[in-house]
Nucleic acid binder design. Structure first.
Lengths: 170, 170
DNA sequence: TCCCCTGGGTTGCTCGATGCAACCCAGAAC
DNA sequence: GTTCTGGGTTGCATCGAGCAACCCAGGGGA
């Protein structure tokens, strides 16, 4: 969540602020908003780093995978590294950047929603574990003091005088 | 977050549990995982309900909008209602179901990520306001007691004996 | 030396989805 | 009975996903 993360923004993306979508949800979706991108990032959070692993576990076509990985690297959420196992040649691997790590909460929120609203009969297959206490974690709203806030008390509020008032703003 | 929400699941979706993707993130993405769906839902959370409003504010082609709205109704996150303003004929409107309302936390998490990692020079345009206290709300992890949990302490953990072990599970 | 294996891709083709433009239809107002 | 407005449908061009096949580099074994 560090503000200096913006240094990792995609370099070809214009620095002119008004060429970006006004809504931060739209900007986020421009980078990670397709099905494969989020599934790849889910696997990255599970610890996968190699092309062949992503391909096997997701059943994704190699050209699509190459395309998505390159886009995610460009978006600054994955980092391509070379590695070499002993007696092997150098290979490529893909690791989460801090921006990618910060997507954990987005994935967790989606997962929590899916578990509740599109359940399987055999229950959740992946849990969100608090590794410090051993308990389970949920995604929720917090106020400035770290106190939980009921979702129904939270409203999206356009900044007064901002551009989010009744025009095409995507 | 009520469990009886599963009654609102898409009726054409098979009840056979093994035809659904194993991962709840994938199941969630099957319903709301394309760019337009999430942007439509964002507008629904801002209070928009009418076809023409969605169309105008998003700049979306009408056939795509009709397609997406129908899919979201079928997915159980929007509900189509007829309404009639006085002196007008009946019209259609689209309202969030409880499942749709529960997506607020997903949209908020995406928005928060976008504000941090793809910022605009003029700052956020939409805030998450705690309507009870007037403060701002953030999205975070909570433990069973409602205490905040640092994101780095939360890990995705496959259920032991579950299907999430090293095969194609999408 | 030659061949094979493995990881990490690229190339070609097909086909469904997306986007735009144009058109349609119902009912109320004039 | 014509117009206006909301809520769509239809036709066509294009784009991207998916699958299959192929490629290429380096290391290991015969």
């Amino acid at each position: 969540m560090s503000p200096e993360m913006s240094l990792e923004m995609s370099p070809e993306m214009s620095t002119e602020t008004d060429t970006l979508p006004t809504c931060s949800i739209a900007r986020a979706l421009d980078l990670v908003g397709d099905r494969w991108a989020l599934l790849i990032l889910r696997e990255a959070h599970r610890g996968f780093t190699r092309f062949a692993d992503f391909r096997e576990v997701l059943g994704i076509a190699p050209n699509i995978l190459a395309n998505r990985l390159a886009a995610l690297v460009e978006a600054g959420v994955l980092e391509k590294r070379e590695y070499r196992a002993e007696g092997e040649r150098t290979r490529s691997s893909y690791h989460l950047t801090p921006a990618g790590v910060d997507l954990k909460i987005v994935l967790a929120a989606l997962q929590q929603w899916g578990d509740v609203h599109v359940p399987r009969a055999d229950g959740p297959t992946v849990l969100r574990r608090n590794t410090r206490t051993g308990g389970l974690a949920t995604v929720g709203f917090l106020d400035e003091n770290g106190e939980p806030v009921p979702a129904e008390d939270v409203a999206f509020e356009p900044v007064p005088g901002g551009p989010a008032d009744r025009r095409i703003w995507r």
